[in-house]
Amino acid sequence: MNTTFREENNDYVMSFEGRLDTAAAPDVEKATAPLMDCAGHNIILDCTQMEYISSSGLRIFLKILKNAKPQGSHVYIKGASEAINSVFAMTGFTNLFEFI
């Protein structure tokens, strides 16, 4: 699992590549640290290259959202495949996140 962080048009963009399973989750969680202090920036989670996500991954996404909302930041999920989207749907994430 590879993650990249960049700032783009004042948005924090986090790209995920490969399988975000339980084994990968601890590293990914560490990698998302820059997203914690997000005041004044919207967050885009780029899932274009994501092949798989488990509940550990979903937990990380939820943590990002819960952290960002009080700071007034929007969290967007971008480019998720149909399979990944169905997982978001099963867990009700489609109601929590904004999708672009």
Binding site: R59, L62, K66, K69, M90, G92, N95
Partner: peptide, 22 residues
Amino acid sequence: DTTLSAEERGIGGLGIHLIRQI
């Protein structure tokens, strides 16, 4: 309860829910 808002939700507990769904 997957209908709760982000603030109301706990972080865990999604695993068994996913299993039942799938």
